[in-house]
Amino acid sequence: MNTDSKTYQAYAKAHAKRSPMARDIVRAFWVGGLICVIGELLKLLYSSLTIPEDLIKILIPVTLIFIAGLLTGIGVFDNIAKYAGAGTLVPITGFANSMIATAMDTKSEGMIMGVGAKMFIVAGPVIVYGTVASLIYGVILWIAERV
C-alpha cells in the first residue's frame, strides 16, 4: 500500500471526528437560525390576521418569550439548550429562559427575595448595559442635532 502523505492527510481529514467546537458551532447555527425563522413565520401569521406592523414588532418577541417560558416550565428548554448552546442563548429565548428558569429555581427562597430578586441575575445586567448604552447614544444624538 503506497499511500503518499497528501492522500493520507486528505483521508484522515475526511474521516477525522469533527472537533467538539465545530460541532457546537453547527448546532448553535441551525437551532439559532431556526428560532429566527419561527420569528418570520409568526410575522406572516400576525400580518395575515391584519395586526398593524408596530404591534407585530412587539408581538413576535412576546410570543417567543412565552414559548421559551412554557418550554422552560415543562423542563424541555434545558435539554434543547444543552444541545444548542448559543443557539438558544443568543435569541430572545435565552433572555427569557434566564429569567424564568431562575424564578422557578429560587421559589424556595421566597416569592420576594427568591423569585422577585433572583429573576434578574442574568437579565438585570442585560437591561442595565442596554439602557445605559442607549441613553449615551440618545444624549450624543441630541447634542449632534443641535450642533
Partner: peptide
C-alpha cells in the same frame, strides 16, 4: 433620550418579567 429606550423595549421586558413570575408560580423548579 432617557425614556425612549425602555419605552421601545417595554413589551419584551414586561413579558419576560410577568411570564417569568407566572411560570414560577405554576411550575415547580
Amino acid at each position: 433620550a432617557l425614556t425612549g429606550g425602555l419605552t421601545g423595549a417595554a413589551g419584551g421586558i414586561a413579558a419576560a418579567i410577568s411570564f417569568g413570575y407566572f411560570f414560577a408560580v405554576i411550575f415547580k423548579g
